[in-house]
Design a protein around this nucleic acid. Structure first.
Lengths: 229, 229
DNA sequence: TCGACCACTAGACCAACGTTCGAGAATAGG
DNA sequence: CCTATTCTCGAACGTTGGTCTAGTGGTCGA
C-alpha cells in the first residue's frame, strides 16, 4: 500500500511510470488463486497418482501451491473434499444426448459407470457415505427415467433402479478391493483343501472380469425388466 | 493351582498360610487376560454400540480394561482389528447342515448375508479391503459349491458367484450409507425439478427395501442360472 | 481520497490418533 | 530357585484434521 507512493513526488503514481513493472501483476505464489474447482481437480489427480492414503490436507495444499489452512476457506472439512472428488469423476459418465433403445441406454450407462470407477480405483472405497452430488444424482435420474421409458412403473421401477445401481457399486468395489496383484488368488489356492470349488476357478484376467460383469448385468436387466421372462 | 495347597502345612508356603488370601488369585486388572478372541468380540460390540468413528485403539483397550499398547501384542495394526471384526460377524450366516434345493440354499445364504450386514451397519463401509477371512471364504465356497450343484460350470459358475456376491455387497452398502433418517429422500425431493423421476418414487420403508432386494435377487438368480430364460 | 469490507492466505497451535520403545510383571519349565 | 518366555503398560513420537490469530491486497461506497 505504501509502495504505490513511495517514490512518488507529486500526485499519486503518475510520476513514476515504471513502478508498475516492478510489481508482479498479481502476487499469487502460483497459478491462479484457489477455487473449489481447482481443489477438486487436484484432489482427483492426487488420488489417481498417489492413492487415498496419501491424501492429506497438507499434501493437497502443497500440490496446489497453497498453505494447508487456505483450503478451509473454500471447504469445510476433508470429507467435503472427498465428497466433491467422488462426485466429480462421474462427470465422465456420458448422458446420451440422443437416446436410443432404452435397454441399450441402460446397459451403456451402467457400463460407463463401472468403467469410471475402475479408472479411479480409490472411488469405490469412498462409497460408505451418501452419494448426493449433482453428477451422481443426474445419472441416477437418467437411469430411472430410461427404465421408465422402457415401461416400468412403481415397485418394478424402483427395484430395477436400485438393483442395477447396487450391482455396479458392488462389482466395482470387489474389483478394486485388494492389492494390484490378486492376493486372494494365491490365498485361496494355498488353502485349496478347504475351498476346493473356489480354487478350481482359474486365475481371472481383466478381460474375464469384464465378461463376468457383463453377464451379471444382462441377467439383471432381463430379470428386472421382464424382457427375458 | 497354587490355591489347592495353600492351606497345607508341609511344602514351602506352609509358613505364611494367610498370604494367599491377601493376594488376588490373579492380579488381572479386569476379567480374564487379553486374547485375540476377546479383542475381536469387544471390537464388534464397540462398533455396534458406538459406531465406526469411535473405534480407536485407546477406546477399545479401555473397554477391555487394558492399556492401549497392550493390544499391539495380540494384533499388528488397527487394520488387523478391522479385518478380524469384519470376518467375525459372518459366523452368524448359517451354513445349512442338510442342504435343500440348491436354489433355496442360494437364496437363503444371500439373504442371511444381507441381514447380517444390516445388523452391523458399520460392516459394508469396511469393505474396501480384500475379504480373506475364513468365515467369508467358507460362505463364498458354499455359495459356489451350491451353484455348481445346480449345474453351473466354468464361466457360468464364476459369473453367478461373483454376480450374487457383488449384488449383496452393493445392496448392503447403499442401504447402510447415509444417516439414520433418509437425508437423500429430502434432498431429492427438494430438487424435484431436476430429478423428477427420482422424486416421484415415494418414501421407502424397511419393508419396501427388503422387497426391492428380494426382487433383484430373484432376477439375478433366474438370469444367471438360466432357470428363468 | 479515505476507510470499511471482502476475498484470500500463512504460521503457530491444539487435541487426537496409530504406533513404537523399553522396562517391567506374571507365568511356565527345569 | 533360577531362567526364559509370555504378556502388560506408561511415556513418548510423528502425523493428522482442524482452529485461532493476524495479516495481505483489492474493491466499493461515501
Amino acid at each position: 500500500m505504501n509502495e504505490s507512493r513511495a517514490g512518488g513526488r507529486g500526485g499519486r503514481s503518475s510520476g513514476i511510470a515504471g513502478e508498475v513493472w516492478l510489481r508482479e501483476p498479481r502476487a499469487y505464489r502460483s497459478a491462479p488463486p484457489l477455487t473449489r474447482d481447482r481443489i477438486v481437480a487436484e484432489t482427483v489427480a492426487l488420488l489417481d497418482e498417489e492413492g487415498a492414503a496419501r491424501l492429506t490436507m497438507r499434501h493437497l495444499a502443497e500440490r496446489l501451491g497453497a498453505g494447508s489452512t487456505t483450503l478451509y476457506w473454500h471447504v469445510r472439512t476433508k470429507d467435503d473434499v472427498l465428497d466433491l472428488a467422488l462426485d466429480a469423476i462421474f462427470r465422465d459418465v456420458p448422458l446420451p444426448a440422443a437416446p436410443g433403445h432404452w435397454a441399450d441406454d441402460v446397459r451403456g450407462l451402467i457400463t460407463a459407470w463401472y468403467a469410471v470407477m475402475l479408472r479411479h480405483p480409490w472411488a469405490p472405497g469412498l462409497l460408505g457415505r451418501p452419494m448426493l452430488g449433482p453428477n451422481v444424482l443426474a445419472r441416477t435420474e437418467f437411469l430411472q427415467a430410461t427404465l421408465a421409458r422402457g415401461g416400468l412403473t412403481g415397485v418394478d421401477l424402483a427395484a430395477a433402479t436400485h438393483g442395477l445401481a447396487n450391482y455396479v457399486i458392488g462389482s466395482a468395489l470387489t474389483r478394486t478391493a485388494g492389492g494390484p496383484e490378486d492376493v486372494a488368488d494365491q490365498h485361496v489356492r494355498a488353502h485349496a483343501d478347504e475351498y476346493p470349488t473356489l480354487a478350481a476357478t482359474g486365475h481371472l484376467g481383466e478381460q474375464d472380469w469384464n465378461e463376468l460383469f457383463r453377464r451379471g448385468l444382462d441377467a439383471l436387466i432381463a430379470g428386472l425388466t421382464g424382457s427375458g421372462a
